[in-house]
Design a protein around this nucleic acid. Structure first.
Lengths: 138, 138
DNA sequence: CATTTAATGTAGCATAGGCTACAAATGGAG
DNA sequence: CTCCATTTGTAGCCTATGCTACATTAAATG
């Protein structure tokens, strides 16, 4: 039983990874729009720490997935779907980060760890984290 | 400050991913050797849920990184370095899984989540998990 | 020991995500 | 309005990870 599910676990991890990029992008785009009024390719590239070329190509994929809308030389816009995903990702990000901090992980470590872990937390794990935060606060 | 580290966080997540495959492979190889006395390409492929072709190619890379030794049509052997990495990965895997279960995450969810999360837990986060387990047990 | 079956390797293709170098568009300063 | 700096796009290359189809080796069985 544990044997059987190991295959599925590995597969899930792989599939998760496919959507991680999308989540990171829409989350960063959403933040940039909030912070600067708009999101440009170059700004996003700086934020993600990669070249504008990679960002540009990835945005094409996200556009084909109906998460963003792009016009040549224009700011990047989130679709409703993209915005919803961003909101969800940001919320989850906050939760995981707060959870790690409440667990006693120093912030400078919790930030990068949360970044990597958040994509792999299923709803039930997120609920457990919420529960922990509630109990800890009281 | 949080701004500055966001770039590094994204970068760290990407770099982490590069070593995830290696960790998953040596961990699975180590388990198979323990369970079946040897590890064959096909068995490993089944375990990881991917084709033997992909496994074969990835093993070449791991061999070039001195983690495994391969001979054509022969079982896969872990180098000392590979075995050490496997031991570390298995230990970390156990810890994360036990932590999630102690947190109240159902096992069937904890297994795949641990699989994805473990690669992103830095030593300080692992320490915090250990601490939590100790406190919970008492 | 020949033959079939299973395991492994190889060829070749696809996608995702990196990059540099160069071209073209935009926008602001003079 | 022209020109220059910045931004964005395009061409082309790389690695990692997936695959199917086919070739080859090893092993098992009659």
């Amino acid at each position: 039983m544990t044997r059987r599910s190991s295959i599925d676990s590995y597969r899930k991890t792989r599939v998760d990874h496919a959507s991680e990029t999308a989540e990171d992008y829409v989350e960063a785009i959403d933040e940039l729009i909030e912070q600067e009024g708009q999101c440009r390719v170059t700004t996003l590239a700086r934020r993600l720490g990669i070249s504008h070329v990679t960002v540009s190509r990835t945005l094409s994929r996200l556009a084909s997935e109906d998460l963003v809308e792009t016009e040549p030389y224009r700011p990047i816009v989130l679709t409703d779907k993209g915005h919803a995903l961003a909101a969800w990702a940001r919320q989850r990000h906050e939760l995981v980060l707060n959870f790690l901090k409440a667990l006693g992980v120093p912030e400078n470590v919790a930030i990068p760890d949360a970044e990597g872990m958040e994509h792999h937390c299923s709803p039930k794990t997120l609920s457990a984290m919420k529960r922990f935060l509630k109990e800890t606060r009281s």
